[in-house]
Design a protein around this nucleic acid. Structure first.
Length: 363
DNA sequence: TCTGGAAGGACCC
DNA sequence: CCCCAGGGTCCTTCCACC
C-alpha cells in the first residue's frame, strides 16, 4: 500500500503536472484556511439560527421525499477491460488496462491488485506493474456491447436512461407491479424487485458475456451508491424506508456521493465532516459556509432525499460537442495551431450547423 | 440592482 | 522509448451593459 503511493509519488515529482497540481492544492488549502477563519467568527446564536433554517429546509425535503419507486442503477464491471478480456482470452489472467501510455481508462481486477487504476497515466501503471498489458481503446466495440446491455435494460424499463456507455438508470416500479399481479407466490415487492434485477443482470451476462453490478433503492442517488456496494458481479438492495435510508447514510463516507468530489470533500473534512450523517449534525456550518446550491445538495446527501426521475426529465439530451488535444511542447506554433483547429472543425461529424459554423469561422 | 454571457472551476466517466 | 486524457454537465464569478 505504502509502496504504491511511493512509486506514484516518485514518478510524478518534478513534472509539470505535479507542480501544477501542487499549486492548485495550495489554492484549495488557502480557501479552506479562509473558510475556517470565517467559521471561527460565528457566534453560537448565528449557528443555531442557521440550523433552524436548515431544519425548515429539511422539513420541505422530507415532505417531498418519495419512497414509492424502485430505481435501479446498473454499472458494468471494469467495462472496457472486460470487453477486451472477453475478446482476447489470453488477457484474462494477466494484469491489463485499456488506454494509452499517457492515460488509462480502466484496468482489470488483476491490475488493480498492483494499484493500477482508471485515470492513471500508463507509464505510471507500468512502474507499478512492469508486466502490465496496455491495450488501446476501441470505442466501436464498447458501443456495440453497450447496445446489447441497453436492449436488456429496455425490457425492464422502456424509459431507461444511460449516463455513459457502461452505466444507466431504470425505474422498475411498474414492472414490479405487473409482475406482482401475475404472481401467485407470496413474494414481497422488495423480493420481486431484487429477483428482477438478478434476472436482468443474468440476461446481460448471457447476451454480452460481461458482468454487471446493480443497486436498487428509492432514488437515483441511493441506487448509484448501492451499485458500488457489491461490485463486481453483485447487487445491493436498500429498503425504501426512511429509517433504513438514514441508517445506511449515517456512516457512509461523503466522498461516495456523486457530486461530492475532491475539493468539496476536503472542505468538509476541515469541518470534521467525513460521513453523510455528519452533514446533518453540522448543518448549521454547512448553511453558513456554502452556497445555496451546495447547501441543498449536501442536505439531500445527508437525508438520502433525491428528486425523483433520474435522467428521464424533459431536456436530458446532449447539449454540446467539443474536441480537444494536448499539444506536445514543441508544436505550439501559430501555424500548427491553426491547422489543428481547421482539422477539428472540418472533422466534426455531428451537425451541418457545426459545418456552417466552421465555414463562417474559417474565412 | 438586475441580467446575460464568458470564463473558470468542480465533478463525472 | 513515449512521461498525467478527452468527452461532457453544471455552478460561480466577473464584467459589460442597461
Amino acid at each position: 500500500m505504502i509502496q504504491i503511493f511511493q512509486i506514484i509519488e516518485e514518478a510524478s515529482r518534478g513534472s509539470k503536472f505535479y507542480n501544477h497540481k501542487k499549486q492548485r492544492q495550495e489554492k484549495i488549502d488557502e480557501r479552506i484556511r479562509r473558510m475556517l477563519e470565517l467559521k471561527d467568527s460565528f457566534t453560537p446564536e448565528q449557528v443555531s439560527r442557521a440550523e433552524a433554517q436548515m431544519d425548515a429546509l429539511t422539513a420541505q425535503l422530507e415532505q417531498s421525499r418519495d419512497l414509492s419507486r424502485f430505481i435501479v442503477h446498473v454499472d458494468m464491471d471494469a467495462f472496457y477491460a472486460a470487453v477486451e478480456m472477453r475478446d482476447r482470452p489470453e488477457l484474462r489472467d494477466v494484469p491489463m488496462a485499456v488506454g494509452s501510455n499517457s492515460m488509462l481508462s480502466t484496468s482489470n481486477y488483476a491490475a488493480r491488485k498492483f494499484g493500477v487504476r482508471a485515470a492513471m497515466p500508463g507509464f505510471i501503471g507500468r512502474k507499478l506493474c512492469p508486466q502490465l498489458v496496455i491495450v488501446p481503446c476501441d470505442f466501436d466495440k464498447y458501443r456495440a456491447a453497450s447496445q446489447l446491455v441497453q436492449q436488456v435494460m429496455a425490457r425492464y424499463d422502456p424509459d431507461f436512461s444511460m449516463v455513459s456507455l457502461d452505466e444507466g438508470y431504470l425505474d422498475i416500479t411498474d414492472r414490479v407491479a405487473t409482475e406482482m399481479d401475475g404472481d401467485t407466490g407470496d413474494q414481497s415487492e422488495d423480493e420481486m424487485a431484487q429477483r428482477l434485477v438478478r434476472e436482468m443482470r443474468a440476461e446481460i451476462c448471457r447476451l454480452t458475456r460481461l458482468t454487471a453490478s446493480a443497486g436498487i433503492a428509492a432514488n437515483g442517488m441511493l441506487a448509484k451508491i448501492c451499485s458500488d456496494q457489491n461490485k463486481p458481479d453483485g447487487q445491493f438492495f436498500l429498503p425504501r424506508e426512511r429509517r433504513a435510508v438514514l441508517d445506511f447514510l449515517r456512516e457512509l463516507p461523503v466522498r461516495k456521493v456523486s457530486g461530492i468530489g475532491n475539493v468539496l470533500s476536503q472542505q468538509l473534512a476541515a469541518l470534521e465532516v467525513t460521513r453523510c450523517g455528519e452533514l446533518l449534525e453540522r448543518r448549521g456550518l454547512v448553511r453558513l459556509l456554502f452556497s445555496e446550491c451546495i447547501q441543498l445538495s449536501l442536505l439531500r446527501a445527508g437525508l438520502g432525499a433525491d428528486p425523483p426521475g433520474v435522467g428521464r426529465d424533459e431536456d436530458s439530451h446532449q447539449k454540446s460537442v467539443s474536441t480537444e488535444t494536448t499539444f506536445a511542447g514543441h508544436s505550439r506554433t501559430p501555424r500548427s495551431c491553426r491547422s489543428y483547429w481547421e482539422s477539428c472543425v472540418s472533422s466534426c461529424p455531428k451537425t451541418s450547423a457545426a459545418r456552417a459554423c466552421a465555414d463562417g469561422l474559417s474565412r
